[in-house]
Amino acid sequence: MVPMSDEKRTSVTSDLEDLERRLDEVRNRHEKAQEPDDNSGSLLGMAWRMSTELVVAVLVGTALGYGLDRFLGTQPWLLLLGIGFGFAAGIMNVLRSAEKMDAANADVPIGDDMPDDDDLDAD
């Protein structure tokens, strides 16, 4: 009686292990298949984000300079200064958002965090 129950138990655990192994397999395959899609979507978003940030900062700087010029009667000096400051602010915005994206999602390829060749042809 005792050997029989032992036998039963081992067969059950081996069944469970088998199931576990197959589940892991499916899970791995699924995760690998999903990854590239996710990245390409967020890359498109990132490109948009950075370009608008740069352009808008230059426009805001220019507009502020122009407005102050009209107000103070110092055409065209503050306008020129505003373009310069706007460009600087734009660069800073882009750098800052790149830093944040890098920190928020470390496996996104930006700067020196480029993916290895192995990662790219994983599928």
Partner: peptide, 8 residues
């Protein structure tokens, strides 16, 4: 620069 960046 910070002000322009905030307004943008």
């Amino acid at each position: 620069i910070e002000i322009i960046s905030f307004i943008s």
